[in-house]
């Protein structure tokens, strides 16, 4: 489905009970350090799932396991009904898992447009000889995917910077371009690693709006790491809380908010 069609179609959310991704008893160790210790949770199709926890809880490591960058020593990850032990990142990408990074990881030497076009890499099929000539299938590819990228550029309201090298952009816009790049992959599962970190209130509001819009219009399932509790509680359908690599709570925002363990983890306990 093209982006425009998606935008014009249903404006209602389709949260289902179908499990898109299931993490079971995953344990990840770096030498003697256990970053994740027997964590299980699932992400349902169409929902916004938040992963929260204090610093060093293993949230980013969890995302890295999900998209194949780290290989957990124990446990299973089932995505779209398929269980896997080890997976290469590019395989995860081709199966529809996209992500953004805590510290912006854009391609600094390239323009906004080229960055977003890079997200279309896997969908382009013209071979290198056509690309040398930039005729036939190669040109058709470029134009077709440019159209898609332009729709995403419209969607995220970054028309004015499409030909600016991303290294020159302010931080808030860079975060937005990174989201655009991930969206260009037409992901089924979008992993956002602290999309709001370092933003001011207005930028945060914009970003929240975009996240909700993405979820609504494209039906993308979103897993989100965020430290701003207001954002987490408002956006997400369900929240999983990690602390020191263990899961301490899992449920709707309201359940999690009133969970004593979570309150202790965040506020500390007097000993």
């Amino acid at each position: 489905m093209s982006a425009t069609a998606a935008i014009n179609s249903a404006d209602t959310r389709a949260v289902t009970n179908e499990v898109l991704l299931a993490v079971e008893n995953v344990t990840l160790r770096f030498g003697g350090v256990t970053a994740i210790n027997g964590v299980s949770f699932d992400i349902r199709k169409g929902e916004i799932r938040a992963i929260i926890g204090p610093n060093g809880a293993g949230k980013t490591s969890m995302l890295n396991c999900i998209n194949g960058f780290y290989h957990p020593q124990e446990g299973r990850i089932t995505y779209k009904g398929e269980t896997r032990q080890r997976m290469r990142p590019h395989v995860a990408a081709s199966q529809g898992i996209a992500r953004t990074f805590q510290n912006v990881a854009l391609f600094n030497g390239m323009t906004t447009l080229d960055n977003i076009m890079t997200g279309r890499t896997l969908k382009m099929s013209a071979n290198i000889f056509w690309q040398m000539l930039r005729l036939g299938p190669a040109l058709a590819d470029e134009i077709k995917h440019r159209e898609y990228c332009e729709e995403i550029i419209d969607f995220l309201e970054i028309e004015a910077i499409r030909k600016t090298p991303v290294g020159r952009l302010p931080y808030g816009l860079q975060k937005r371009v990174e989201l655009a790049r991930a969206l260009a992959m037409q992901p089924d599962l979008l992993l956002l690693d602290e999309p709001m970190a370092g933003m001011n209130l207005e930028e945060k509001q914009d970003m929240c709006r975009f996240i909700i819009d993405v979820n609504k219009t494209f039906g993308t399932t979103i897993a989100l790491i965020e430290h701003d509790m207001g954002v987490v509680m408002d956006l997400s359908d369900r929240v999983v809380v990690l602390e020191y690599g263990r899961k301490i709570a899992d449920g709707t925002p309201d359940e999690v908010k009133s969970d004593q363990k979570v309150i202790d983890a965040y506020l500390g306990v007097s000993h």
Binding site: A93, F101, L106, F107, T121
Partner: peptide, 11 residues
């Protein structure tokens, strides 16, 4: 520019 990000995008 960023080989890790590139790899996670399917390159």
């Amino acid at each position: 520019d960023m080989d890790i990000a590139a790899e996670l995008m399917g390159i």
